[in-house]
Write a protein that binds this DNA or RNA. Sequence first.
DNA 1: GGCAATCAAATTTTCGAAAATATATTCCCA
DNA 2: TGGGAATATATTTTCGAAAATTTGATTGCC
Lengths: 231, 231
Amino acid sequence: MTLSDDAHDLIRRDIVNGTLAPEEPLRMDALKTRYGMGFSPLREALNRLQAEHMVIAVPQRGFAVAPVSPALMWDVIRTRIHIETRALEISIMQGDDDWEAAVVSSLHGMLLQARRLAEQECPTEDDFRCMEDRHRRFHRALIDACGSNWLLDFAAKLYFNSERYRFAALAGSIRGTVGRNVQDEHRRLADAATARDTARATELLTHHYLETGRYLESVLAVPQSENTVSD
Amino acid sequence: MTLSDDAHDLIRRDIVNGTLAPEEPLRMDALKTRYGMGFSPLREALNRLQAEHMVIAVPQRGFAVAPVSPALMWDVIRTRIHIETRALEISIMQGDDDWEAAVVSSLHGMLLQARRLAEQECPTEDDFRCMEDRHRRFHRALIDACGSNWLLDFAAKLYFNSERYRFAALAGSIRGTVGRNVQDEHRRLADAATARDTARATELLTHHYLETGRYLESVLAVPQSENTVSD
DNA sequence: GGCAATCAAATTTTCGAAAATATATTCCCA
DNA sequence: TGGGAATATATTTTCGAAAATTTGATTGCC
């Protein structure tokens, strides 16, 4: 792993969790100090992040964190639904025992960490990072048997972009599901997938994302208050 | 426009038209000489191209042109159909007069250049470049009113990747229309789109890409020299 | 006072050398 | 002769300085 890879992961994380605010200019000197490396790996990382819609670049004027807005959020969500429902269909059709095992396993790991997080009174940064990671792995496991590098890559890029909105809504209050049990949605989704019920699985996935979108929209419309968060 | 942008476009072009062969290692010194610039803009370009599946990077071992294979080609084509039929549906639904005008206009420009190219006995490099450009613009115009940056960006990335196979088949012989009239397919596609016949337009688009795939597969099956065999 | 033009400071972009890492070759010894 | 450390070479990766460009401030002019 090179320094560029580190820079890529670190900057992306800081953009996703809002440490680097939307539209904030990214000055090379500041980045150099913050991440403790030279120009080259930083610029290489920013060039990759540009292709992933995490930053924008204006020639001779440097980079800035990509903006966020309800319209942009819905575009991400709709596109994600279009990509992932397709990938899920194929996965359900083609997935073997290993795929099923990975779905069950990643679901279990995520639920364990979700419970741990809920019981903990003062979770550490690492606890959240672990939860985030297992959540990502679960959604990836569902579609992992689709056999298309392109669909998987697009899904990954959309995932990180949509996470920006979850984290934005998280600012202030930590946990909480309003009117719905997100982990239960995950469980039912995994059940439908392993039961090879394509129609139900894609419907649950679509509903899962749309509900999250509606919720985030409502939370982001009234910022800075005591908010609760779902996914 | 920065040197990095130039490098990005130049290297991509050389990969698409096969000047840089699939899986060929990209040594920094050679690139420096070939493109007449320093390490920085070259590496920045390569990092972007990596995110676009045009090159692959192995840490500490540099970059190489991304491989090609029938399996990879079909993945690109299937994904492209999935993305573009969706974008086309929305475009047809939402496109205004300007969209229709752009479709008609870009079709016309492409047909003009296609005829010019067919009549010319010894077309220049620029003639081909112009044709390639107008072809790309036509396909972009069709979906341009979909209103989704993500769909348009994915379509663009898939376009350049699929062009690699067209150029590979083109190596040696110039004109690649056997048993079908490609420009007529384009015309009928534009007609269906501007007539707002969604079902027919998406059907024609799908057929257009599948036929191209079948044709390329047959041509690439018996090439002159060594074949890259991967998954 | 308004408005260019000019200069100074800040910032991005690019370069070539240096450091780190991989690959090839040589040499030694059983 | 063959295996394997040791060395040499080739290549990637990273750094900090230099060049190019933008931004902000100041001055001079009408």
